[in-house]
Design a protein around this nucleic acid. Sequence first.
DNA 1: GTCTATAGCTGGATAGAC
DNA 2: GTCTATCCAGCTATAGAC
Lengths: 212, 212
Amino acid sequence: MSTKQRLIDGALEAIRVHGIAGVSARTVAATAGVNQALVFYHFGTVDDLLAAACEAATLDRVAAYRERLAAVGSLRELLDLGRELHAEESRLGNVAVLAQLLAGAQTEPRLAAPVRAALRLWSDEIEAVLHRLVDDSPVAEVADAAGLAHAVSAAFIGLELYEGVDPDGADAALEALARLAVLLDVVEDLGPVARTALRRRTRRAGGRRRLD
Amino acid sequence: MSTKQRLIDGALEAIRVHGIAGVSARTVAATAGVNQALVFYHFGTVDDLLAAACEAATLDRVAAYRERLAAVGSLRELLDLGRELHAEESRLGNVAVLAQLLAGAQTEPRLAAPVRAALRLWSDEIEAVLHRLVDDSPVAEVADAAGLAHAVSAAFIGLELYEGVDPDGADAALEALARLAVLLDVVEDLGPVARTALRRRTRRAGGRRRLD
DNA sequence: GTCTATAGCTGGATAGAC
DNA sequence: GTCTATCCAGCTATAGAC
């Protein structure tokens, strides 16, 4: 394995263990088992290494789910895959890494673009599935695929961080969301008469809602 | 204003400006306009100062919304207040501070308890309102107040971080969630016959969903 | 490409004068 | 309570030997 790759893996592991506030050329190099000066030889700055690690990790994980996402055939299946993905990535610590990088990107402009790109990789993937499942179902009335894809990505990050300090609270949140999502099933199975009624009602309610 | 208070305010401002990775006794003291050694005299360690700042800021902001939350009379109104709160706190940077502290708490055990307590202050408040609005409405079938309160808190954090690197994506996410929430209005206005039908359907769908 | 060594800085934390 | 002065660890980044 190349030194560059070892540094990237070391960076990801160092973020997992020490958080964004605890990563440094020294901690990363120690984790990777290489000399500290090589961080600067290969990447120039620590932030550039973090950016490279962010991109590499995301490309890898998104690719790992592409097939499973393509096989999803209903909202029910998508929700199940979502919970599976949450459990799996939580265990591997990938969402945690992305969350730390996202927190760091708030005040470090050089991290903002790579982190945005990583989030877009995920949300584009989710958006494609949502379009396929939702666009010609009754849910289309209330579901904007692009916006929801971003919301799902943000929720994954938020829940991961929440879980770090309040695991029971995060569990309860996931349960509650799954329960609420049952509504989508109900709408999806609606007959034509009920669909028309729903459309009428959502149009009205949507009009009342638009405030800002 | 006491030195302790100036340090707390300085800590909050320093987190806003430099992020959790950039706060130090020196940056905080400089922001507060006091001597660096006073951080340790008054709080012992930097983390203990951050913990105190976390608690103070949250108590302050939760109190600022208590009246408005008590005045909420419908899910529609709650959603509108939520978007108002998001805009207001985003501008003041309070959610951003909580998000940074939450990120730091993932790897700093001394921050975990205070941050969990802060999140609970918010979610308890939200849970109380949800109980009041939802418990004897048809939505109760699909809405667990306690779990949803945690979900809402986590979503606020996730969206705030998302907004920091992708404002357009975060806007789209909020729009999409508001649109989806229209479903709740629809269910809330359901007649008794439709309510019974919904209950039957959610029971079945809920049974199929329980996987992990 | 990789190593040692080091410059120059910022970090937490304390001692001791006032 | 507040200040100066200081210790020492850790930080980024570079120079230069191999």
